[in-house]
Design a protein around this nucleic acid. Structure first.
Lengths: 118, 118
DNA sequence: CTCATCTACAACCATTTGGTTGCACGTTAC
DNA sequence: GTAACGTGCAACCAAATGGTTGTAGATGAG
């Protein structure tokens, strides 16, 4: 099990970073294929500095990481951090499914019938 | 198959709404048990108006809905919208898993999401 | 060495955000 | 009817956001 200790501020940063279409696209691209900041900047209709700041926001949220390749900085998406965010949402959904107080029972006895899906 | 047509602005709103600890807590509470705006406001160390604005942001993102009960407005979390957000993250992760040989994966699983329309 | 490229960061600016207080309006209680 | 309650909205404010330009350092090319 991954040591999954995200503070509220960490979660804030993750969702804030994802709340921008350009940043989501950068994550999408760099999950598929890593790219230098300059390569990324060429894909968008804004200045290099603006894209560089978007990458910095994503890096601060742990959604991408950077490594050096000569004078370039290669950006790569981090699927594990996305998985953590997805897990948080899954926990919320689970809370909803068990809103009639059956969560404890289900966790204690996984073979018990699940509550009706409303 | 859910009719899942979220614009980029919709996704912006969803993740932005989730990027605040108070709002996430409101979602958590109202997924478990619906509550009036006043009941919610009593749980946080800020003015009623501030909480009312948080609820409005969540409502604009489709993460909660409101119904009238007399003079009260009852807030209820919407698990389906959270599921949509989770699905978006799952699609990103899938993109990562198939970053090599994606064609094969798509051919083997025709129900998988289509490649992004650029 | 010199010049071009890639990156980072500072300064600046308009807009948005997250909080406040105050007020108006509908509903409930007395 | 009148007072209290619950809600929504406007106006205001400080701070954060998302963009810009400019500058400077590090690396690669010739």
């Amino acid at each position: 099990m991954v040591v999954d200790e995200l503070s509220q501020a960490d979660v804030d940063r993750i969702f804030h970073a994802l709340a921008d279409a350009t940043r989501r696209d950068i994550v999408r691209r760099t999950l598929t294929k890593e790219a230098s900041v300059t390569e990324l900047a060429q894909a968008y209709d804004m200045s290099f500095a603006a894209v560089q700041k978007h990458v910095a926001v994503l890096e601060g949220a742990g959604l991408v990481s950077k490594r050096s390749r000569g004078r370039e900085r290669i950006v790569r998406g981090d699927a594990a951090q996305i998985a953590r965010a997805r897990s948080l949402l899954a926990q919320l959904e689970e809370l909803w499914r068990s809103r009639f107080g059956r969560l404890d029972a289900v966790l204690a006895n996984p073979d018990a019938p699940a509550p009706p899906p409303a």
